[in-house]
């Protein structure tokens, strides 16, 4: 690995506390190294981008951090808690939620119901489980979900079944669902993919608002302009290894990053 690794992402004395720490993680599938000795941190109230060519292992990192797969080596720490061997369903309780590259909403449920599923970790008591919330239109969980839809301009879709909705709307619902878990760290897998320019602008404003509110974002994305407008730190992967890290303006000058991903034509 010939790392031209550059800045560590901002002046050290002012660095925000670490929200997510990935330390030396590795993962192989049938002998093929998907991730090799990867380390990076995401700081509280900042957005970190994971970039790299297709197949570099970006989504695999999300799967390892969220617990869909177990790591072969290394450690994952979320808000100071070592979650490396924690079952995937418990990790959301440590404050980490994620969205998916191929939107994975519950197709037979309505938009509102999908958001109610997203609230689960905050509504996990037996009373919440067995309260007939559907009999009370003003039930607090429903109201909260409706408010979240209204805040995102999605209220007219509240009762629509998800399977029939346009891709852009489903993508936004996926993001709103992730935020409703009340997590402090959001892993967003290609949130702008498939969105038109106006939707992308709205998304950028929304994510910047979340960062301003103190949320930590880790974003996998290919749109460099989008990343430039949100992320203060960028981690570049290639063949499962980190080849550079730092602000986008710095890593994009890195010869190895240019060779592996950005290309010489891009500035």
């Amino acid at each position: 690995m010939s790392s031209q690794a550059t800045s560590t992402g901002g002046a050290a004395p002012e660095a925000a506390p670490v929200a997510l720490a990935v330390t030396g993680i590795s993962k192989s599938f049938a002998g093929v190294h998907a991730i090799r000795n990867l380390s990076f941190v995401a700081r509280k109230g900042e957005a970190t981008a994971l970039i790299g060519p297709n197949g570099a292992g970006k989504t695999t990192v999300f799967n390892l951090v969220s617990g869909v797969y177990g790591v072969d080596a290394g450690a994952v720490t979320v808000n100071g808690v070592d979650v490396t061997h924690m079952p995937s369903r418990r990790r959301i309780g440590c404050g980490i939620a994620r969205s998916f590259q191929n939107v994975r909403l519950m197709d037979h449920l309505s938009v509102l119901e999908n958001l109610l599923v997203g609230q689960h970790i905050r509504a996990a008591s037996l009373t919440d489980l067995l309260t007939p919330y559907r009999l009370f239109p003003n039930h607090r969980w429903r109201q909260e979900a409706r408010q979240a839809l209204a805040d995102n301009g999605l209220e007219r879709y509240a009762n629509e079944t998800v399977s029939g909705l346009p891709y852009g709307v489903r993508k936004r619902v996926d993001l709103v669902r992730a935020t409703l878990a009340g997590a402090s760290i959001l892993l967003l897998d290609e949130p702008a993919a498939g969105l038109n320019p106006s939707e992308t602008n709205d998304l950028r404003d929304h994510l910047n608002l979340l960062v301003a509110q103190g949320l930590t974002l880790v974003i996998v994305e290919h749109d460099m302009h989008f990343i430039d407008s949100i992320c203060s730190n960028v981690v570049v992967l290639n063949f499962g290894e980190k080849i550079a890290e730092g602000p986008l303006s710095v890593v994009r000058q890195d010869p190895e990053v240019r060779r592996a991903y950005i290309g010489d034509g891009e500035n």
């Binding site: 969220s66 959301i92 994975r104 109610l116 689960h120 996990a124 919330y133």
Partner: peptide
């Protein structure tokens, strides 16, 4: 009318996502 029924459908639709939701 309860969350229990909601979770039945969620688990049937996508167990991986349901699991990640906690």
């Amino acid at each position: 009318r309860t969350r229990f029924a909601l979770y039945l459908t969620a688990v049937k639709s996508d167990p991986t996502v349901a699991d990640l939701m906690g």
